[in-house]
């Protein structure tokens, strides 16, 4: 079984963030991590491999620094990594990223392509569905459970009422939710391995994607500007002296919540 897991390097949420003059994230100002949701995808890929055999390739589209994110996946147990990196990719929107991933996949063998449910920075939950549409592959999204057979996969897709059981032929695109598994920690051996494993870096020309389709040139989504959100102010803080329920109820009435 050939498994590809797509992961994105994102800024740590707790860090202070700045936008540059082009309204893009100033990535030099923050610490980067593997998109937390993608760690579940990596773990799921490793579990499938442990069950069915095969190889796991981690794939990322981003700047050179994204190698660090791929190394984390190698340290967890992934054996191969590919980074698509090209100056023309800067400013890609979700369709641009999806086109680059689809292009990279054309260079790889795959039965399953795993994604996280969403990235924490773009938070669009668009890339997996777009890759599936571009490649005409079935989409098993929001999987909270995944069972892989020889030529099909069955997933539980979380709904607000429970879940749907969904099945599709392979090859298929799967996006996973938190809770599908518990991502393992990198092992010492894995960390050593990650330092040694070469990471293939492919420019756009190597994956057959035209520069006009991606990056700023291809982007349909255009940021006009931004304003800092008015920070919430601390309200009244009251120590309970036995009458807190009345204080809250009065407040709910006054603020028209009741």
């Amino acid at each position: 079984m050939n498994i590809v897991v797509c992961l994105k390097q994102v800024p740590d949420t707790t860090a202070e963030k700045k936008l540059n003059a082009e309204f893009r994230l100033d990535r030099t100002s923050v610490e980067n991590i593997v998109n937390p949701f993608d760690e579940y995808a990596v773990e799921e890929a490793l579990k499938i491999k442990e069950q069915k055999g095969g190889t796991v390739t981690a794939l990322s589209v981003g700047p050179e620094s994204a190698k660090e994110a791929l190394r984390k996946a190698i340290a967890m147990g992934v054996e191969k990594a590919m980074l698509v990196s090209d100056a023309n990719l800067a400013g890609s929107d979700s369709l641009g990223t999806a086109k680059a991933i689809a292009g990279a996949l054309s260079k790889l063998q795959y039965d399953i392509v795993l994604f996280g449910m969403t990235s924490t920075d773009a938070a669009s939950a668009q890339v997996a569905g777009k890759v599936a549409a571009l490649l005409n592959l079935p989409l098993l999204s929001y999987a909270s459970k995944l069972e892989v057979g020889d030529d099909s996969a069955t997933s539980s897709r979380q709904t607000d009422k429970g879940y749907d059981v969904i099945s599709a032929k392979l090859p298929a695109v799967v996006s996973v939710v938190k809770g599908i598994n518990e991502p393992r920690y990198p092992s010492l051996k894995g960390i050593m391995q990650a330092k040694r494993t070469p990471i293939d870096v492919l420019p756009l020309s190597d994956i057959g994607v035209d520069a006009s389709e991606v990056g700023k040139a291809g982007a349909k989504e255009k940021v006009l500007g931004f304003v800092p959100t008015k920070a919430r102010q601390a309200g009244k803080v009251v120590k309970d002296d036995g009458a807190a329920a009345v204080v809250i109820a009065d407040f709910l009435v006054a603020s028209k919540c009741m």
Partner: peptide, 28 residues
């Protein structure tokens, strides 16, 4: 949480929540 709540109550939820439920019921 008290830095951004509109109303903060320093107290024990086990005391306050049941009383609040009753209070809301009463007012309704």
């Amino acid at each position: 949480i008290f830095e951004f709540a509109d109303l903060g109550i320093v107290g024990d939820i086990f005391d306050i929540v049941p009383k609040l439920t009753e209070e809301v019921k009463k007012r309704k």
